[in-house]
Write a protein that binds this DNA or RNA. Sequence first.
DNA 1: ATGCTACCCTGGCAGC
DNA 2: TGCTGCCAGGGTAGCA
Length: 277
Amino acid sequence: MPELPEVETVARGLRAGMIGQRLQTVELGPLAMLRPSREAADWTRLEGGTVTGVDRGGKYLVVSVRTLAGDWQIMMHLGMTGQLTLRSAGAVRPTHTHAVFVFGDGRELHFRDPRRFGRLALAPAPGGEQAFAPALGVPAGAEPLTVDAAAFVAIFHDRQAPIKNALMNQKLLRGLGNIYADESLFRAGIDPRARALSAPRLRKLRRAIRAVLREAIAAGGSSISDYVASDGQPGWFHLRHRVYGKTGEPCQRCRRAIRRIVLAGRSAHFCPHCQRR
DNA sequence: ATGCTACCCTGGCAGC
DNA sequence: TGCTGCCAGGGTAGCA
């Protein structure tokens, strides 16, 4: 499922192929998950515009488009099963393709999402220091790869919720989902149910998160269900998972069985021996 | 303010 | 072989 490393991989792939391209037509299927609604936003005003940027904020992908009438941002969220792929002109459109953006050179950006948990949103680009259109609700949480240690500790040290719940709260930190929260907590030796962590443990957790995310980006992400990069290729970081999806298997560090519990309505995988409250 | 649960949705799989 | 029912979970609405 797409979390920060997967969205970053997609953004890097699209950046090379899309920046400078002229956006010729926008084709939206009947089930495109649009925000604002189809009636409220006019997507045709993007036609004729030029792609000026492809960026990532948390789990959102942000495509900037410059038109004669102004600057716009398309916010794309892949939900659980979303795919954004760059195809050649007239390529087959597989089932669950909800939107196609056709470029001047004939290539097409396909948005496919079988489970329809994803979102496509359109808003005027904000000016000044605001990076992403605030109206579309990219959560204001810190970016895990750039937040400094003091800020990270300040965000989490007074939290009473279990640390894993807090890590996945996009208003606090944006980009971590179930996989990378579990993997980071394992590497930091912290039980997902731990609360009110000390500053030293939080600093260790921040380092673990950075290491896990960097390795995952280098691996092109984790392909658990439907995830593929913009060229259609899967990532391989799932081969490096140490706890996620490993229920009952021996811990790589102590050989005791990995446990699965439910936290925040999600599976949490951890080693009860290596990870402490 | 904070945290919990239910819901959305489909494909894959176990079990009969 | 084919059917049924369950499970996965990101984000959010609604509730305590």
